[in-house]
């Protein structure tokens, strides 16, 4: 619009300048023709310019749309990258945890044949004792009874002064019972009762002993063992269990 006004003014000026000289220099027709030409020329130029302006504005609009569109796409991609990065980190961490767990388990299994060598030079690592115990306990929790029994038996030998000894005996016996090594289970239960009669697990060891005696067909021995629990550990839940079992045995006869 600005350009158009300018051109109009220029035309007017041209006309004014040209007017006085008209008669002297040119025919009316020629003058008119020239003005017509000039006008046509100017119009062509304006049209061209308008077209260019249109085009560039159209381009600009398209670019604006494209930028908006790209911005939306980039935001979405950014969101996806954030989520993927987070998930990858979480997965990596989980994998590492699995590996460490697996490594711990394997180490217990792998150190098993090297048992005689280990006896020669016991390592003085204060953390090793609870770690070994925990590792054995984890095997038991995982239902790996043969491995658990071996691990606890190793523990009993490796850490003779450990506070975990009564517990290790109890769990080794339990693992042995599960693998149907009844004689060994009975032996371990008896050792626990004999060596640590005041331990909280002692009455439970006797119940375990009674179980092994029962599965081995020694009903008389089982009865005697249960009676020992009732007599020696009154007021414990083990005594209650023993009493119940005795009642069951009596009713079966």
């Amino acid at each position: 619009m600005q350009a158009r006004n300018g051109v109009a003014a220029a035309l007017a000026a041209l006309f004014l300048i040209a007017a006085p000289a008209r008669a002297a220099l040119f025919d009316d027709d020629i003058a008119r023709q020239r003005i017509e030409d000039l006008r046509a020329d100017t119009k062509a130029r304006i049209d061209a310019l308008t077209q260019k302006l249109e085009q560039s504005q159209r381009m600009q609009g398209d670019l604006g749309n494209q930028i908006e569109s790209l911005r939306g796409e980039i935001a979405k991609l950014r969101g996806q990258v954030e989520v993927l990065t987070y998930e990858l980190e979480a997965a990596t961490k989980r994998q590492k945890d699995f590996y460490l767990d697996l490594d711990n388990r394997l180490r217990v299994l792998e150190t098993q044949p090297a048992k005689p060598a280990a006896a020669a030079e016991p390592a003085v690592d204060p953390a090793a004792e609870p770690r070994d115990y925990e590792a054995a306990l984890n095997l038991l929790k995982g239902g790996k009874y043969p491995e658990a029994q071996v691990a606890f038996e190793n523990f009993i030998k490796a850490w003779p002064k450990s506070n975990f000894q009564p517990a290790a005996h109890y769990w080794a016996a339990s693992a042995a019972f599960q693998t149907k090594a009844y004689s060994r289970a009975a032996e371990l239960y008896q050792q626990l009762y004999a060596q640590w009669p005041a331990d909280v697990r002692a009455p439970e060891a006797l119940i375990g002993l009674a179980n092994t005696q029962q599965v081995q067909g020694d009903a008389k021995g089982a009865k005697k063992t249960l009676e020992t629990v009732v007599a020696q550990y009154p007021g414990t839940s083990s005594a209650d269990t023993a009493r119940q079992r005795l009642k069951q045995m009596a009713s079966k006869k």
Partner: peptide
Amino acid sequence: SDRGGSPQ
């Protein structure tokens, strides 16, 4: 922020 395409 919704820089990741949804408000978080």
